[in-house]
Nucleic acid binder design. Structure first.
Lengths: 146, 146
DNA sequence: CGCCACTTGTTGACATGACAACTACACCGG
DNA sequence: CCGGTGTAGTTGTCATGTCAACAAGTGGCG
């Protein structure tokens, strides 16, 4: 009574999982090698570049555990890319913000990262194929996220 | 001189990366919780269920480092799901094969895994959307793989 | 044969992630 | 104001992944 996948679904599915894995692994490796940043660190920096945030908001936005965000931010602080500051309104809270060098490093990394993104995904797909993947993965994200 | 992504590309791209991340995280967690298997372990078992393999071939098929495969197989051997045996033709080589219990455990896990796959991906997409994602991710895989 | 370059699989050191326990603080209802 | 409940962030422990170095074996070529 197991609702197996048919051959075509099987193929699509394996391509999806394996492609997703290879893609993320590649992006991580590229950022490590050329900028000394983890993909996780990079994503945190990106979110901090858009607005200063509390740790919890940050965790929610990147959908990582608070513990993980603590550690990642630790590293970024040690590297001088991020600053922590206590939050006056809620003394439990901690405010995280990019430093000047953090912004510089992020911009450098981002420029290079985009090239890799193009090479690995945007340029390999037709424009409408990309948007199709986008809407499909957005659906998956909402189901897989919570 | 930086070829940035336009707004639509940006959206598609973020959906792709975040969706891919959430998806893999979910699958891993589901397998851990309900079957005590890592996603990496599961994939190894799947490939071994199709044919007995040398460690290197295995590593190539799942696109993990040989070191990683060694460790993963170590765990599977300790759990009694896989057997190692020396290869007569090439005395450097090691042959890995599913045990009886390994096959049983895999089949149980697979049944459940497919349900999760449906829930997270197959059922949330229209059939043609799934195939579109499949072909697109296959392209990405070939570029990101090597 | 004997040497050298390459491959195979493993190992150990280290980085990163998951998870549960903990402290400090906030907030609600009495 | 006080006590209990919940939230924010951190910490420690353990599982897993990465990487470089290694021993053992292969294969070509003098």
């Amino acid at each position: 009574m197991t609702p197996w996948l048919d051959a075509a679904q099987q193929r699509s599915w394996r391509a999806l999982v394996e492609g997703a894995g290879s893609l993320l692994a590649r992006l991580d490796k590229h950022l490590r090698d050329s900028h000394g940043l983890t993909l996780a660190e990079y994503e945190i920096l990106v979110h901090l570049s858009e607005s200063h945030l509390h740790m919890s908001e940050l965790a929610a936005q990147v959908s990582h555990s608070r513990a993980r965000v603590t550690q990642t931010v630790d590293r970024l602080v040690r590297a001088g890319l991020v600053e922590r500051s206590p939050c006056p309104q809620d003394r439990r809270g901690v405010h995280a913000a990019l430093t000047g060098t953090g912004r510089v490093r992020l911009e450098a990394a981002a420029r290079d990262h985009v090239l890799e993104v193009r090479r690995l995904a945007v340029d390999v797909l037709d424009p409408d194929e990309l948007t199709a993947v986008g809407t499909a993965m957005a659906k998956i994200r909402t189901v897989a996220q919570d």
